[in-house]
């Protein structure tokens, strides 16, 4: 099983998100994360989908997505010149004794403290999956209270992605 990131440009029409996600469930493919938002052109949205599977699944998914009328472009963004990021907000238990250690960890990972209370702390971190997972692992020891992930967004470097 490998992890894949697939980027899509879709027409911003009624039901398009549902159509894309319904293709995945109908064909028995699993989505790890899906993000969607408008591009510079409001009639077009970008979707970034991450999934686990083998290369046969990935090929099928790309071809089946390409068949959808509202999909303008589909691209495997797993390798190559791609910038990908995820934003995560983590609320962690932070008593007096733990506070300094958590701040140190946040510094190392360049996470921002966005809220602070007598017994908890909220961190915001952006990055790739590996970096975020590493921080989450460390914070587990203190007690994770809540975690919210946006899912990955990805864009190719240089040029114009729509070419």
């Amino acid at each position: 099983m490998s992890k894949y990131t697939i980027g899509l440009l879709v027409r911003n029409r009624y039901g398009v998100l549902s159509r894309v996600s319904s293709m995945f469930s109908r064909r028995g493919f699993n989505i790890d994360s899906l993000t969607v938002g408008e591009t510079a052109d409001s009639s077009i949205s970008r979707m970034t989908i991450t999934l686990s599977g083998n290369s046969h699944d990935r090929d099928q998914i790309i071809k089946q997505l390409a068949k959808l009328h509202e999909v303008i472009k589909v691209k495997d963004m797993s390798d190559g010149e791609v910038v990908s990021r995820e934003l995560v907000i983590i609320k962690v238990r932070a008593d007096r004794e733990a506070r300094q250690e958590i701040l140190n960890a946040a510094n190392v990972f360049r996470a921002k403290v966005v809220d602070y209370s007598p017994h908890s702390m909220m961190l915001e971190i952006t990055g790739t999956g590996d970096k975020i997972n590493a921080l989450v692992e460390i914070l587990k020891d203190y007690g994770l209270l809540e975690i919210a992930r946006t899912g990955i967004v990805a864009v190719e470097r240089g040029g114009n992605d729509r070419d």
Partner: peptide
Amino acid sequence: IMGTTMGIVKHSYRVE
């Protein structure tokens, strides 16, 4: 009906 038939059509529209 669009949602109902999503997986069994080549494409579908709701005209707004």
